[in-house]
């Protein structure tokens, strides 16, 4: 498959637009481009949407995407937040449907723990390598 050749360019969904992803003509979902009236609820929704992956243009979060699917996902998130659901419960609801892939926030699991152990390992490594580099005495 020869896609258009392009370097260091952001090409959003439109470029991936194989016919499969052709966009429809219905208006966007009610809460795709509309904020919740309660600012604290909207802030919660926004924080969650920033960390959910758009399933159509897979390199973007749903809060950064013009894809209809992202709009529909924002709609679901905002409706559920408005209904009083906890953001993490909504994340969980989506993970149950799409797997961990849909969330940009990796969970600590048997597979992902090295991601979270990495800082400690690196610091330990630095300590091991550096401990002989210092002379014991500071200037008096």
């Amino acid at each position: 498959m020869r896609r258009r050749l392009a370097l260091l360019m952001l090409a959003l969904c439109a470029l991936f637009a194989a016919p499969v992803l052709a966009e429809d003509s219905l208006p966007p979902a009610p809460y795709a481009y509309r904020q919740l009236d309660d600012p604290s609820q909207e802030a919660k929704a926004k924080a969650l949407m920033d960390t959910l992956r758009c399933l159509v243009c897979q390199g973007q979060s749903i809060s950064d995407s013009d894809a209809q699917m992202a709009g529909d996902m924002r709609n679901v998130v905002r409706m559920r937040i408005a209904a009083g659901e906890d953001p993490e419960a909504i994340r969980q609801w989506l993970i149950e449907r799409y797997g961990d892939y849909v969330s940009y926030e990796p969970r600590v699991t048997g597979l992902t723990w090295p991601l979270f152990a990495a800082p400690l390992v690196m610091l330990a490594l630095a300590f091991l390598l550096l401990r002989k580099r210092f002379t014991g005495k500071d200037a008096a």
Binding site: S61, G99, D100, Y104, E105, P106, L115
Partner: peptide, 25 residues
């Protein structure tokens, strides 16, 4: 951290799982 987070989805895929590593990490 950046290298590991960038490559981790690939590593996960080698174990048959799809994960995303993004801003929250």
């Amino acid at each position: 951290i950046v290298l590991m987070g960038t490559l981790y989805p690939l590593l996960a895929e080698a174990f048959g799982a799809k994960v995303s590593v993004g801003p929250p990490y």
